[in-house]
Design a protein around this nucleic acid. Sequence first.
RNA 1: GCCGGAGUGGCGGAAUUGGCAGACGCGCACGACUCAAAAUCGUGUACCGUAAGGUAUGUGGGUUCGAUUCCCACCUUCGGCACCA
Length: 818
Amino acid sequence: MSQASIPTYDPGEIEPRWQQRWDKDGLYNSDIDTSKPKHYALTMLPYPSGDLHIGHWYAMTPADARARFMRMRGFNVLFPMGFDAFGLPAENAAIKKNIHPKTWTYANIERMRLQLKSMGGMFDWRREAISADPKYYKWSQWFFTQLYKHGLAYRKHSPVDWCPNCNTTLAREQVWGDDRHCERCGTPVIKKDLNQWFFKITNYAEELLDFSTIDWPERVKTLQTNWIGKSSGASVTFRTEQGDPLEVFTTRPDTLWGVTFMVLAPEHPLVAKLTSATQKSQVDAYLAETIRQSDIQREAADKEKTGVFTGGYAINPVNGEKIPVWIADYVLMTYGTGAIMAVPAHDQRDFEFARKFNLPIRVVIQPAGEAVIDPDTMEAAVPAKGSMVNSGELTGTPENKAMEKIIAFLEAKKAGHATTNYRIRDWLISRQRYWGAPIPMVFCDKCGVVPVPDDQLPVLLPDDVEWKPTGESPLKLHPTWKKTTCPQCGGPAERETDTMDTFMCSSWYHLRYLSPNYDKGPFDPAEYNYWAPVDVYTGGIEHATMHLIYTRFFQKALRDMGIAKGPEPMLTLRNQGIVLGEDSEKMSKSRGNVVAPDDLVKAYGADSVRAYLMFFARWDLGAPWNKTGIDGTVRWLRRVWTIMQEPSAGKSPSVEAEKNLRRRLHQTLRSVTRDFENFEFNTIVSGLMELLNDMQKFRQENPGPSKAWDEAVDVYLRMLAPVAPHISEEIWSRLGKPYSIHTQKWPTVDEQAAADETITLVIQVNGKVRDRLIMPVNVSEADAKAAALANEAVQRALDGRQPKQVIYVPGRLVNVVG
RNA sequence: GCCGGAGUGGCGGAAUUGGCAGACGCGCACGACUCAAAAUCGUGUACCGUAAGGUAUGUGGGUUCGAUUCCCACCUUCGGCACCA
């Protein structure tokens, strides 16, 4: 057989053929097998938007390669796939094209499933779960009622964020940026007062800060930590003149003697009672103005302070002083207690307010050794670092004792105590949209709010609905759907007409994958006990303070309700970056810079696309797409194709040549193995490219039969298999090796073969490289130093000077200092 | 303002623990094959310099025999948070 008899590499023929074979053989079915360690690998489930995007490929193919690697390493790997099928885009597309959201969604799923299959992934499709499927959302609803029964779901009338474009409320996590825009569509949100369902994620604020049992990226942990926003301080209770308790939260209770006024949020419940007759018209005018302004205007940090005096006073519990109470919109009702004690000497915001309204300023913290601060001439609040002064019986307390002493003082006076505040708010779960899981609650005039009993779940989403948005839940406008009977008393009742945030569905999908058809519970306990938790989770960082915080909350809630075990749902998390368009901008249809994976597969084959996506950027960073770059991986796979299949004929290699080949082979195996473990996909491919270059050179010089060559081909194909599953399977089969390459063992590094026999000894003078010498690996220190000192380039660089010192790093270098 | 990521050739990037900076690939240039082109193969490719050599990992310092790597102070950029008490 000559080279001419090796057919041309034709991925278009090879790839579908193997995909069908694997499918037919159930090669990627994962079943419980207690004889093997399990490995649950998961990528964030896609939304069925219509077409598989290059971003999906970028997320999924390296994850698939790693799952395959783990399988070859002897793990029983589960790598499932499904669809986050509820959500707004379905409704929006349906409105635009006048098709039912369900039709649109399921047609897209069909399409995307085929596209996913073209990737050659090792998905176990028997485990596919679709969140819009009643047998799925039955359990989303069941979880809702469970949370309700355990006091973790509640309904509250409050001001909430509303997206006027999406026509629905949003959770705080789904409102982004300076201009407080909707995370989905970018429209700035407005406030509305509505009765909405919430999940008590705040109950878990403290526990969510604990990442000690999981291996997650620092970035995600930081984002979540910032989001949770823990601050420690004290709760201090002032009293109004009328005797009402007026509680504030402060991180600096040691500045209590510096309080010269108090400020309430305009919405604070005590405002009306505190307002004096003379101030009433001013207060009312301010309240009216505040309501008129948007949140964005109100919360702009650079805005000049505004506010009015209520005419009322409060008593400072530490010294009995009577201090004026103001209202101002820089105090937010949504944080702390909606009231603050103002310490203008040591807080810049309070300082600005005091200067503007001529309120007194009193310094109560004095830095050691600095000039005494004059409140009349100071131009900004001074940092409260130093000993307490002007603070009654606590005057003189040093900084490091201040907190401890003031807390004890407050507790003794029963005026306050140490406490912690969190920025995170409860998760608003209600959505005024059609294409979601109905919230399974019933309102009865007699019995109040009643959860739908388990045996009446799921509460089915009706198909015959006017799903165009009106600002009201489409289910509310359905003529009959909401009418029901009370599960408790049997009397007439109405259903909740809001649907759930789709992040509810995605909070537990990793559990549904385990047994998507199980009907006695959300998941089959046998499957759960074997597979859970997720070992490796991969996806985008944009979910750091949405999905990734919700799903952690969900796991903790399930654990506390006795439904699941363990504190965390996903043990290891890795984020991929973003593939930008060739113009370095985010890919979008309107920019016309979208790269379509289908076209790439058609032009180059899935294996080349997979390899290129792993190779072209650091996976965690992403990069702009480069059209010509893929030629590199295409050429590489073509060369693999011919070199691996070239029959042996001619001169056989020397023992030395074989030894060198094996050394390179096993060194590469070592690095590729390590890189797979570390999610360093780009160097896996470059390592394989380098080895191929070496193998090609070897083969050009030694085309004859060789055991080492056969070994190299065998090991090379195994290493290639996770990256390029089709071509490796095809060559493997054409070489007459047993089906399937994907069930073969990952090769073991022969450390002896991988060991270097010679080293390149770097010869430096004063840290600058002057020469490189090939030396035996076991060269003695004396010999290495002697060789360096005798070196011509070293002598030239020394220029007659005597070496002061000679540094020897075994196996690496000699540095002559002189 | 606070927190975090990232700054290395024309481009994407590589460099176990502080020890050969620029692997691998793209692009480019030249050459081979070809009537020609594509494909393929080969050679070269950080910068300055004819060379010896010198200069280079965002900037400026420091530690060290030796720094892309460690420390300090900055700059740029991306992301998050922010009148959060």
